[in-house]
Design a protein around this nucleic acid. Sequence first.
DNA 1: CTGCTAGCATA
DNA 2: GTATGCTAGCAGA
Length: 899
Amino acid sequence: MPLLLLVDGSSYLYRAYHALPDLRNPAGEPTGALYGVLNMLRRLESDHKADYKAVVFDAKGKTFRDDWYPEYKAHRPAMPDDLRAQIEPIHAAIAAAGWPVLCVDGVEADDVIGTLATKAATDGIDTLISTGDKDLTQLVGPHVRWYNTMSEEMLDTAGVEAKFGVPPSLIVDYLALVGDTVDGVPGVAKCGPKTAVKWLTQYGSLDAIVANADKISGVVGQNLRDHLGFLPLGKKLVTVVCDLPDLPAPTALTARARDRDTLRELYTRYNFRTWTRELDSDAPPASEEAAAPPAAPSEVRYETVFSWAAFDAWLKKIETAPLTALDTETTSLDSFAARIVGISLSVTPGEACYIPLAHNGPGVAEQLPRDEVLAKLKPWLENAERQKVLQNAKYDQHVFANHAIALAGIAHDTMLQSYVIESDKGHDLGQLCSRHLGLATIAYEDLCGKGAKQIGFDQVDIERAATYAAEDADVTLRVHEVLHPQFAKEPGLSRIYHEIELPARQVIWQMERTGILIDGDTLARQSHEIGQKIMALEAQAYELAGQPFNLASPKQLGEILFGKLGLPVKKKTASGGASTDEEVLSELALDYPLPKLLLEHRSLAKLKGTYTDKLPRMINPDTGRVHTHFSQASVVTGRLASSEPNLQNIPVRTDEGRKIRTAFVAPEGSSIVSADYSQIELRIMAHLSGDARLLDAFAHGEDVHRATAAEIFGVTPLEVGPDQRRVAKSINFGLIYGMSAFGLARQLGLERSAAQTYIDRYFARYPGVARYMEEARATVREHGYVETVFGRRLWLPEIRSSNGNRRQAAERAAINAPMQGTAADLIKLAMIAVQGWLEQTARQSKLVLQVHDELVLEVPDAELVEIRTQLPRLMTQVAQLKVPLVVEVGVGPNWEAAH
DNA sequence: CTGCTAGCATA
DNA sequence: GTATGCTAGCAGA
């Protein structure tokens, strides 16, 4: 039978703290409890091979028992500061050691343990409860044992009876009689273990004792009768709750991989030298499944290339190497302005070179001439057969393009490898190094400083630059050697990397390179108009307020609205101030004139500040176009993110905002073509859930919101009114977001119960969707991740959070992520297909933007007709789902007109 | 000058 | 209720 090991962390915390002498590290920080708890866990691990395990802690703050009885635990001394200081490292170390940690708000560790042990027993799993708390012996049964790790005392049912004189089933009765002074639960005065056992053996239960209370003679009998009123509450207080909702399944409590870096950090800090050595020794515990990374070179050989002879030697190496790691150092982090300062190369782990080319700081050494070196490297750089691996190749590809070099043979990108394997983590080279090589690297800021004082890389001293740059090429190769083999045992992830991310990388690069034409004059005119309106609104606002103030300052605004004018406060901000957000102002606008002005002012100020003023300044003077940066590794679900400027949030919902899109234009003789997937996430929901009614609606090309409304309101589609459709639309969107009744009620301005009724009706009509939602929750609880249709893995570590709100947020994300992520996969495949077709057929049309479910192209008029028909074909054929994919195409002289 | 909050634009 | 990025204001350097 499988074994579940449940450790009462809170119990051991105190016991370890009090049992051990005042241990401290050299910095004077207390370490006794930390050492004691970790040591105890290590012993437990080696003595009991468990299939599932967890350490459970009491939550901070009040629990339901405090509501039942204010005296509960009220007289416990506050936690000593020396112990409090160790709580955080204890949690961190336990988690890093691979133990699942549970800490549930409003609930004591006992109840979590009770619930899990009970669930495990029904699931056919034996449980060992490791605790110093005798109260928990009440949980002992055929499948549950109690174990005190410190005294090595193990109790089964017979053991409990032998120790206490009553079976586990009577332990709560026993405790209610005896009381618990530590927890502040009074028992019957003068009734200790002996008397309690005597009565329980004689009458059989607490209830029977109470029923016969008048027959018990003596002072203790009178004490019992005096205590009768409290006994039910006393029993309730000592009874462990075994049916808490929303706990992870016992089977979800599997050991995690050890986080050696964090452990090493903690062991070093707290001076646990034996354990540090053990961590660094060559024989990691057998429980670690991860394949050992390629042996790290014991020392590195980095060479700075100053002579043609040295350069030629390296050129020879890279011309024959199966794979070369390549990195550029440049004058700027802006990929379009950057010029090459130096190049680093590595073909063997631990060996790398840096070729300084354009350093011109003080006292700089003679370097090889940049243009000559680039000319000699160009054939290799442009040779698709010469395989290269880079960290964030898109950047270097731009840099080389700035020097008229078309970098080819980009076989791998370590940033994308990391993104596919664990999209929820960071992917910069320093983070990859520390995670996968256990190595701290030189930080860019260490060389160049940061903020206003930052210097260009060309100003950095060559020797220091060389070490940094060579190291980057070296570790890129080594990270690749750790990450890439992981795809061999994960075919799903391998496909995402090789068939989606790598080819999409090239398309995205091309899209950035192309940029989009923006009509600065149009935006300048709009800025001027908006500026006039803003000034007029400000004048009116000052009038109504009786004084001038900064409308854009939430603080000043709050003082005027809620102070001077005395308007009611509707909502607080996170930091306790009076909220003035859109929701609040809209509500106030019903009764007062000023909020309406403010709303309009806000909206116009946003348009002007973020778009009409800013966008023209982002036009690249060399190309006359705006080149956004698409980040391929920053959205955990697989979407792209756009920045500098963000062209994925150009307004569209209001008429005023939408005008900005008229400035996104095509050059003379070309048009803007926009193609977007219709209802893509709802279609994916239909596919994933397999819900018959939803599939049917899409199969018949129905208006899905109308169809939903008809189902919820029990009318025919033709009878659906506009409000009903609006409600249905909100529900459909809510479903995609992992909606709660609370959220839907907010969105629709309804009572929570009304929203719940709609949701209930929805799930009654679309049972497949309900099942899918539950499956998503179950999957993430069990595995810690969910997957897209194409196998992209979306990790949600917060599902194991001790914070209930975070866990629920993770559940909602688990519902949303497969839909958002599958949509992201689809449009990336579409980009690859479209770009491939454009190149194969030698079209002049160019992809210019991607906005999650929409592709925007710049199309010469001669190609318009064909693009119009080909785009939907290319975009819909990338996958065969259980629902048809539908693409809507628009054409116009600008982006607004193309919708 | 830097980091934070509030607020808001998109899918 | 999901996922982002950007601006102005503001407080503490």
